[in-house]
């Protein structure tokens, strides 16, 4: 065992430097030159250059003129991008049943047909940037009404923010909520004309 002491210490230190310092720094260096946008976290900035979010990270939307993301269990206040996580509730957990029942009831009148599952379930990360096309469709009427624009305009924004499965095989169709909402705002700036509406239950 003692004979192994030297190689053990030397190898640990050498490889810590190589793999723990040199390697990540090298990747960081190349990444910032080759893919600066992604390397920084796919941030979206407004006209003033201020960060308004990341295209990859869900943020809270409660106002009726916006598409709403899925419920979030990240952090105490939801959508906490420095405290990701799911609800971890088991399928028979009464808390889960209660929460879903309440959320579903709140959404029942919003559109036709059953409430899509993703609209009343929290994601694994709590930061799921996407909702299902069905979920988005179901919200379109509310958004259009709140904005006073035709539903087809909302649907256009939704279509523009929809990703289809890769090669038609991998993954599921998904609508990026932030991108869709930004597209809506860009088409008819809603922030300039605030619509007084009580925030619906989240």
């Amino acid at each position: 065992m003692l004979a192994q002491l030297r190689p053990a210490l030397v190898a640990t230190l050498f490889f810590t430097l190589l793999l723990g310092v040199a390697y990540p720094l090298a990747v960081t260096g190349v990444a910032h030159v080759a893919f600066p946008k992604q390397a920084e976290g796919s941030l979206i900035r407004d006209g003033q250059g201020q960060v308004i979010g990341s295209a990859l990270i869900a943020q809270a939307f409660a106002k009726p003129q916006y598409l709403h993301p899925r419920p979030s269990a990240a952090g105490n206040d939801a959508y906490d991008a420095s405290n990701s996580g799911g609800s971890n509730l088991g399928p028979l957990n009464p808390d889960l049943a209660k929460r879903i029942a309440k959320d579903t009831a709140g959404l029942q009148g919003e559109g036709a047909g059953p409430v899509p599952a993703d609209a009343v379930t929290t994601s694994g990360s709590g930061l799921d940037p996407d909702i299902s096309p069905a979920n988005a469709q179901r919200q379109a009427a509310r958004v259009a009404a709140a904005r006073g624009i035709p539903v087809s305009d909302v649907e256009k924004a939704i279509a523009g923010a929809t990703k289809t499965p890769w090669l038609g095989l991998f993954g599921q169709p998904a609508v990026n909520v932030l991108q869709a909402n930004l597209a809506l705002d860009a088409a008819a700036p809603a922030r300039a004309a605030p619509i007084p509406a009580p925030a619906p239950a989240t």
Binding site: G86, P91, A97, A101, V120, Q172
Partner: peptide
């Protein structure tokens, strides 16, 4: 069908609790 979704009369096609929309059930 996930029991909580069934009970709430929501669409219970996929147990989406804890899943990401972009991955869904197969991924």
């Amino acid at each position: 069908p996930a029991p909580a979704l069934v009970a709430a009369h929501a669409d219970a096609g996929v147990n989406m609790e804890g899943k990401e929309v972009r991955f869904g059930a197969p991924s």
